[in-house]
């Protein structure tokens, strides 16, 4: 600690200057309201961000999953249709009546 910190002349200088030129009263209500609003915004921002990100991620997973499933279902249907067509062709090309 400096020897200057508690020198009586320094205390007197501070008293004289402060007495002659006091600091205006702090607008406590405004400063406290603004600080607490910023605090609320800061503490609320994380859950909101998490919620938004979570919803986006879920939508992405469902969308991609649904698209992939639809694509695989469609190709499966095409394969089944092709099989059925081939079977029908086979039946038609065979002389079933004469065989029966």
């Amino acid at each position: 600690m400096s020897i200057l910190d508690h020198h009586p002349l320094n205390k007197a200088l501070a008293y004289v200057l402060n007495h002659a030129s006091p600091v205006p009263e702090m607008p406590s209500a405004r400063i406290e309201a603004a600080a607490m609003a910023a605090f609320s915004a800061q503490t609320a921002s994380r859950p909101d961000w998490v919620k938004t990100f979570g919803a986006l991620a879920a939508s992405l997973v469902l969308g991609v999953g649904g698209f992939v499933y639809y694509q695989s279902w469609q190709s499966e249907q095409k394969a089944l249709t092709a099989d059925a067509d081939a079977f029908a062709e086979q039946l038609l090309s065979t002389d079933l009546d004469s065989a029966l």
């Binding site: 400063i31 607490m36 609320s40």
Partner: peptide
């Protein structure tokens, strides 16, 4: 903790203002 934040503001803001 909002109450702790409010107490902090009350404790430190006068000196910051001055």
């Amino acid at each position: 903790d909002r109450a702790a934040a409010a107490a902090l503001v009350k404790a430190v803001s006068p000196k910051l203002w001055r």
